[in-house]
């Protein structure tokens, strides 16, 4: 059996007295799209942020392409630079609030990290950035500043920015939640294409339609644990757990 792209074992994370993740296990195969659902406060965003060590877990192991990224002295502190470098150059992330760099143009947003972190030449980075921005449909916005773009356009730039680092895994943290409804589709379309190209993706989302269509695996979280997981047709259409049913009912009512 081939090694999983991402494997989480007994992940625990607490913020002070509050235990946000209570022993979460999860395996994501290469090329798989895992959609994580759950009510707010269920720990789904924190789980995502554990994967790239933005929130290093207190306990448990994270394997990325077979490497234990929480191993070694100071395990769980997430402070060792080799782990951070290893993880963050392989894992891209897109945020709910886009978090584009407002003082940089679209082009600079996309080229900054490859130039600074990977030390690539300006010409090489710009060529790559043009291709990526073309792919997300923003080839005409290269010299714009983020504040001149719509939310949907900003989010697509953010995706291109993450892709510029050639990640092996992409994390999407409620990337459409801050968008006006008419702008959601353009972002989801971009993600659909990405999935179709075989990108491994962990997606925290409330978009059930997207999850059903694109997701290979659905994970439903509540209270810091995975309540139910499986194929979309199983979890979304025939949920076994009471909590899952209740949540799906509430989301569909919207």
């Amino acid at each position: 059996m081939s090694e999983a792209m991402v494997r989480l074992e007994k992940i625990n994370k607490r913020f002070g007295a509050l235990e946000v993740l209570k022993g979460v296990d999860l395996e994501v195969a290469k090329g798989e799209v895992v959609c994580i659902l759950g009510p707010s406060g269920s720990g789904k965003s924190t789980l995502l942020r554990c994967v790239n060590l933005l929130e290093p877990p207190e306990q448990g192991e994270i394997f990325l392409e077979g490497h234990d990224i929480c191993r070694g002295p100071g395990s769980g502190t997430g402070e060792q630079s080799w782990e951070l470098d290893f993880v963050r150059q392989r894992v891209g992330m897109v945020f709910q609030q886009f978090n584009l760099f407002p003082h940089k143009t679209v082009m600079e947003n996309v080229t900054l990290a490859p130039r600074q972190v990977l030390g690539k030449s300006k010409a090489e980075c710009e060529e790559k950035a043009k291709a990526l921005l073309e792919r997300v449909g923003l080839a005409d916005k290269l010299d714009q500043y983020p504040e001149r773009l719509s939310g949907g356009q900003q989010q697509r730039v953010a995706i291109a920015r993450a892709l510029a680092m050639e990640p092996h895994v992409m994390l999407f943290d409620e990337v459409t939640s801050a968008l006006d409804p008419e702008l959601v589709k353009e972002v989801l379309d971009t993600m659909r294409e990405l999935a179709a190209e075989g990108m491994t993706m962990l997606v925290v989302t409330h978009e059930l339609g997207f999850a059903r269509e694109v997701g290979d695996q659905i994970v439903f979280m509540d209270g810091g644990v995975i309540v139910e997981q499986g194929k979309p047709t199983d979890v979304l259409d025939n949920p076994r757990e009471e909590r899952t049913k209740k949540f799906l009912g509430l989301v569909l009512e919207r």
Binding site: N52, L54, S81, L84, D85, R88, Q89, V91, G92, M93, F95, Q97, N99, L100, F101, P102, H103, L112, A113, Q116, V117, L118, A158, R161, A162, M165
Partner: peptide, 29 residues
């Protein structure tokens, strides 16, 4: 905004790279 540091760090930038290219240029404005 704290998201700026998170975005920079998630792109693989070190703390000092993030400070220099992302945080300080915005802070001074």
């Amino acid at each position: 905004q704290s998201g700026q540091m998170e975005a920079a760090r998630s792109l693989g930038m070190s703390h000092s790279q993030a400070m220099r290219h992302v945080i300080v240029p915005q802070a001074v404005t």
